[in-house]
């Protein structure tokens, strides 16, 4: 089933922060992991991912460093303390929201 794009993009920041709260990753790794975990529901375009990552980094929510893996220099992203804080808030907000949606749907 195709999922409405706007439904995904609003929560993408939260999803990326969640991934990075588990381990540091580079861009391609994030897209790949998201794809696998969501059973191909989240087909995030790289053209959307990098501007988002760079803006999160600009806001101080993510940090970056370079690491050489198998002869390739990769840019790794890691979550900062501020990023973790935002993730916690977003997760709570999301739970509240999804519970509310679920209750409304159950009533109908």
């Amino acid at each position: 089933m195709a999922i409405d794009k706007t439904l995904v993009s609003g929560s993408m920041t939260m999803l990326l922060l969640k991934l990075l709260s588990e381990q540091d990753m580079y861009g391609y790794e994030m897209i790949d992991t998201l794809r696998q975990r969501s059973q191909n529901v989240f087909e995030l375009k790289a053209g959307t991912l990098y501007p988002l990552l760079h803006s999160l980094e600009d806001k101080g929510l993510l940090g970056v460093y370079e690491k050489e893996v198998l002869g390739k220099t990769r840019k790794y992203y890691s979550i900062t303390r501020e990023g973790k804080h935002l993730l916690k808030n977003k997760e709570e907000e999301w739970k509240k929201y999804s519970n509310a949606v679920a209750s409304v749907l159950a009533l109908a």
Binding site: Y28, A46, Y50, K72
Partner: peptide, 12 residues
């Protein structure tokens, strides 16, 4: 930007 995007396309 170039290095990062290029790396991504190559990986994919």
């Amino acid at each position: 930007v170039n290095a990062e995007i290029r790396g991504h396309i190559e990986d994919q």
